[in-house]
Nucleic acid binder design. Structure first.
Lengths: 259, 259
DNA sequence: GAACGATGTTCGATAATGCCGAACGATGGA
DNA sequence: TCCATCGTTCGGCATTATCGAACATCGTTC
């Protein structure tokens, strides 16, 4: 596949995505030095993006930040997601039943992104945030998605990742992780036991589309102290059932030959 | 101001924004005919946008839709908005008090966009949607923002608008509207009485920043039947108070010489 | 208050590259 | 099987995005 990509659009994308990495206002100088482009080039791109509402300039310090047009577009994306629409009532019911925080993520192009988060009644401060990426190797949802990839996809995805240790319990050995993924695939759900954040435990199950491909996952997250074996035994079938019911709404048909 | 904008970025923006206008999947053909560009040009731009995650192709019908990268970026924008963060608890309190739906909008570059919406306990199906634009001439928030513009700004903004009638009560006469705006400015709040949707009544008040410029507005929306004069008299000071308290959090200082 | 530094903005020349038209490929329907 | 439709590739040309340098603007220092 010999792509012929358009340079200036890529540069515009580079600039926009710089704001994802830094999460602060950036000056022309900042951007040009970080990307290794001349000030005037960056200036031209930025002014175009500003003109179209993709960036906005702070009139006090002349620095730039992401603009409202992206808010508008981003919001439209979430409405496009049938998955979100279908899953919302099911997730709501799950939160009511389990009294804990539930997440919905989608998987696309090797990335796992939180698209819905419904807090349980009890407070829980955790990493996850709608719109942010989830690591694939140390979250319940990431591992659930990874485990159900077809063929060499697991290896491909893991070769692009460097198994960053978030806590002392994060699996950083590739062999070990792959074995663990096979186990997850057999049992049909995944557990994250303080692998991304100390004191946090999650149970997750994969969601499939009508092609039997994994398109996302849901998880229930709670402090480890509230997640004992009894609770776990109670939560697991609920989450699997919810995931299955979402999958069926996406057109997924249970295939007896697969398992 | 002799802008030197970058064509291919503008074209990319044109394509992305086409999805705002049509809200459906679009094919290469659709896009090229709607924009008057050759198929190959559109193809190049689209593939670049897809490569970067700004569009995604439906593998079944080869059509495109907005991609997850925009979701990620758009979500980051909303977090950038101090206004949203500051206003949320105040809005929540307002909904509790009034038991009706409250909106928060921002004003930027002539556009009014809903950035927060908190439903009251009683159901209410209305036009507004987070991320969508609000018309300026026939919504409470739009008129509140318009009324407090400086100098010739009102005329400039209205000259770009064609006062589209949404209902039989929408003001479509420019002179009449401008008089009405002066009145709103004097009384400090605006009312929308079935001007955008039959049966819907809103009260709105403007939000100012530390430069005394209007940066947004909040409104309370309810079915007209629930919004009688008694309720109105009760709601107006609450909404004005909430708006003022948000303004003060934004650094706004009440200026006695202004009123 | 003048000189300086740092950064944003403008401008002209040039080489790169994005654009179009035409051809090719793939798919589905008649 | 042929045809129609649409997505994709390719080569040549003219457009235009890029860079460096100059200019503007702001804040700071002495």
């Amino acid at each position: 596949m010999t792509e012929r990509l358009i340079q200036s659009i890529e540069r515009a994308a580079d600039i926009l995505e710089l704001f994802l990495a830094y999460d602060q206002e950036l000056s022309v100088k900042d951007i040009s030095s970080k990307l290794g482009l001349s000030k005037s080039t960056v200036h031209g791109i930025i002014k175009t993006l500003e003109y179209r509402g993709y960036l906005q300039q702070n009139k006090d310090d002349l620095k730039y930040k992401l603009g409202l047009k992206l808010f508008e577009l981003g919001n439209r994306v979430s409405h496009q997601f049938d998955l979100g629409k279908i899953a919302r009532p099911i997730i709501k019911k799950l939160v009511d039943e389990l009294q804990e925080t539930v997440h919905l993520v989608v998987f696309e192009r090797g990335e796992v992104i939180y698209i819905e988060k419904l807090d349980g009644p009890r407070a829980l401060r955790i990493y996850s945030q709608v719109g942010k990426r989830a690591p694939i190797h140390c979250t319940g949802v990431g591992k659930a998605i990874l485990a159900f990839q077809e063929g060499e996809e697991i290896n491909r995805l893991l070769s692009n990742t460097n198994l960053e240790p978030y806590t002392e319990y994060t699996m950083t050995n590739k062999e070990e992780l792959i074995n663990h993924l096979h186990f997850i695939r057999e049992q049909g759900y995944s557990i994250d036991d303080e692998e991304i954040e100390l004191g946090l435990k999650c149970v997750a199950a994969p969601i499939f589309d009508h092609h039997q491909h994994v398109i996302g996952a849901i998880s229930c997250a709670a402090p480890k102290v509230r997640m004992d074996d009894v609770k776990l035994a109670e939560f697991i079938p609920r989450i699997q059932q919810a995931a299955e019911s979402i999958s069926q709404s996406m057109g997924y048909k249970t295939n007896p030959t697969l398992l």
